[in-house]
Amino acid sequence: MKKFDFKKYSKQIITAAVIIVICIIFAVLKPAKDELLSRTSPAMQEMIAADENSTRKRVTVTYNDLLVINYVSLSSSGANVMSEKYVGLLGSVYSADEGGMKVVGQMVNYTYRMLGCGENLMHGAKLTILLTTLTVIFGVMLGTLLALGKISKNKILAKISSAYIFFFRGTPLLIQLFVVYFTVPGICGFAWRDLFPASDAEAVYKGAFTAALIAFALNSGAYCAEIVRSAIQSIDKGQFEASKALGMTYGQTMTRIIIPQSVRRMIPNVSNEFIMILKDASMVFAISLMDITTISKNIMTSEGSYLVFIPALVIYLLITAFFGYIFDKIEKKFSVYE
């Protein structure tokens, strides 16, 4: 096993390190809740004092525990009357709505939200990563079967595989998703949420996720089939002949000789497919699932922040970089013999 190549991944490591260091600084230096309240503007303090004496509470103090941005907001029967945001940095408290700090404050805020609390980008990232990873795993397995079918001497099998690939590559993924989510249960008379116990509060989402995974895997299988097929066909014919001369059956030849060698050749393309799915995963918004893209759009709409997309982009980049590294490792592992 080769040692970790720090030089090669310096870009990714530096990005991650900078983000972590910034978060630690902000977390360590965050003001205490009381301190924060004492530093609000005079107008806000007046409102808070008035509210404490009133019978109808109008002030909601949202103190974001994890950190950096702290909200003090005042609402009256649902409507936001007054709201202040503060960034705790180096012991100072700034109003996040003032000048340049507004940008910094919001960026830091969303970075935190993506790192984990409430309905946030991190939840979206979890869904995106889970969906993408499982899709690629099932897609490659299905793709391998389809590829073997397509190159098999059995004409019926070859035709079926070709037709499958033609269909799933020739129609939009979004409609395939709709068909799996709406049409199939409609015809067969079941609902995706019924797959999970009614007591499960998240049954609806789990059901939708299952449907999305099936649609994505079926679609990805068609693309992976072409990847696997071209990898298998790139293996020297001599390998088949040597196996046959040694008395190995077609199945033994495939599983022991050909496929292990093709794995290495398909990794760059599978890595590509992974990145495509990662981005296609945003389509799940259509069946009410929340991935990174959907959640950042929601945050934008509900809070009027146009900055949320920047951390969203960063998350995508981090995921891509991380899995790029994993695929690299796998490729190395499979090419020890070269």
Partner: peptide, 12 residues
Amino acid sequence: GMVFQRFNLFPH
């Protein structure tokens, strides 16, 4: 048993 011009060893 057969021996080929291009060896055809299993490289992996």
